[in-house]
Design a protein around this nucleic acid. Sequence first.
DNA 1: CATACAGTCGTAAACGTTTACGGAGTGCGT
DNA 2: ACGCACTCCGTAAACGTTTACGACTGTATG
Lengths: 347, 347
Amino acid sequence: MKGIRQLAEQLNISIGTVSRALNGKPDVNEETRRRVLAAAEELGYVANQSGRSLRQGETKVIGLMIESSKETVENADNFFLGVTSGLQSVFARHKLDLLMLPCPSDEDPHEYLKRMVARRIVDAMIISDTQRVDRRIDFLSRAKIPFVALGRSLSASNFPWIDLDFEGVADHAVERLITLGHRRIAITAPSSEANLGYLFIDSYRRALERHDIPFDPSLVIRVRSSEQGGYQAAHELLLLEERPTAVILIYELMAIGLYRRLTESGVMPGRDLAVIGFRDAPRARFLQPSLSCFRISLYDLGVALGRMLLATMPAYRDFYPGGERNIIWPLELMPGESDAFRVGVMG
Amino acid sequence: MKGIRQLAEQLNISIGTVSRALNGKPDVNEETRRRVLAAAEELGYVANQSGRSLRQGETKVIGLMIESSKETVENADNFFLGVTSGLQSVFARHKLDLLMLPCPSDEDPHEYLKRMVARRIVDAMIISDTQRVDRRIDFLSRAKIPFVALGRSLSASNFPWIDLDFEGVADHAVERLITLGHRRIAITAPSSEANLGYLFIDSYRRALERHDIPFDPSLVIRVRSSEQGGYQAAHELLLLEERPTAVILIYELMAIGLYRRLTESGVMPGRDLAVIGFRDAPRARFLQPSLSCFRISLYDLGVALGRMLLATMPAYRDFYPGGERNIIWPLELMPGESDAFRVGVMG
DNA sequence: CATACAGTCGTAAACGTTTACGGAGTGCGT
DNA sequence: ACGCACTCCGTAAACGTTTACGACTGTATG
């Protein structure tokens, strides 16, 4: 209970030997090691992390920073937990633990990060919700703290990140809708400074222009990515004088609110308005009509994130050679009923 | 960068004084303190947590253990993040940090907890998803680690917990439905060993019997608490020879799947079948028909949890006197359209 | 003038580990 | 007998803090 010293005393061995035995060092008799391990097991001894960290300058802990902003809380889904499983499956192999660091909503994420890093609670970080310019990235780069970002950013020139393929999704969605005869296609984007919104809209615009459809800013609806935001989005769509025939949602669960608002006005999703969603979720399939949705494999994403992070850490680099430093994570379209109709056949 | 020693050197002061200055100890000249604080700010010095923890035997970190079981991931909503905000608002006052400890799905929660506690990563714990008998509770009690459980348990006799008022909800829901004329009322429960399921069903049964309605086990549907589970639940309901006229859901988002499956068979929720949900979420309001739902104030719940936890910790006890050791957390009914009809008028 | 006391600061020990170093013992070849 | 290599283990320093203790002023008190 009192530490390695007690353990050593009980065994009549020096603490040095006990430590070596527990840590699998070679210069210890196998018989002694057996005894040490047995005693440790019996007494429930586990090394005090503070002492260990202090000595070796590392904590064996990886931090996953998440923001509990209002928006994140509102649209919170299984996203982080899903990614977490994948991450842990990688970290477990190296006896690394994953801790989630929730940044309080009233604290600046950058300050929070600095605090956590300075306190040496973690060896490395995974940050998410990257902003267009994100000081955290500059800070981590300069401080030489290993990290991976979930999301691109304009900050710093060359840092490891994985990002969802927003461009591919917007592109694919637009192409699909145009093929189905749509010409007037709306799209939703977050109202925040999150980088993903910009990428999403840019790609949407390029896809349209490729088909000689002029970009109409009034078709870009900036709302929160939640049920409530979906409701609001539908509301704004209905106010447009020339109503679009399709809408691309940046977050799947917005469909719930969207459906609701549409039905209130007698507009039927999947017949009067095509809807395509985005981000994870077999859950989209349970909507009525079921949502056409681009799906993410969260577990695999977590694995990729974990590997990329370890590849940047000297101690583990050798285990993950030749990995890429940046990945655009592909999404897979799961066709549903929400956009399964053709429009404008009369030309 | 190198620690308190550098800081002291630069200021030509001993490290002891620097430490005292930074920690607000009284026996240091105000002028010196000013200089120290300024230098610390400039150099971005923050005390190394390992050194500090080692010395004082505490980490200033509270752990919130969450399980990333398949079920939790599936029905993950804003629950933990919502609670987190409330917790942090309390902890911030004492300069405590909250870390989330996600137990890997392939590790025994009890072992995981033991590991984390033994490593001294946290000073205190908040555990959730308590099982009917939960070894974690015995362990924490015996090891004298301060903790609060989110959820009752049969383990140990007297430990601090807050639990949602499942009994009140089941009771209230049954009463309401009976008033509306229902006699055949189904209910869903999780298939796991989680304690909440038992409480939920027990209370449901008692409420029924109070009205001389016999308890029919076939009306208890054990499915996962997710959209998919809702779909499955509806499926099973439809298979019953004598179909119930109402159903009580243990988790709100199940309604999505439930609605879906019902509509597939031409049964209209809110007209042919009354539905009442449970747990948080204004989101229930965006369903169609909107879900009658018992709502939780997650933030307030977090605050209560935080206070109860600190009240058990000697260092903070004095700030939170006279608090209760157990709380049954009330829920508020938000009436919707999903059960707004009367049945069996013909008697 | 001796003493007490408050205010300020430096010294050094302690927290629980890990690990470089060296020593004791053994076996083996010369 | 001697040297050498090898195995195993003990010793002690180091990691970065906090804090009990005492030292040193200056001032008030007897």
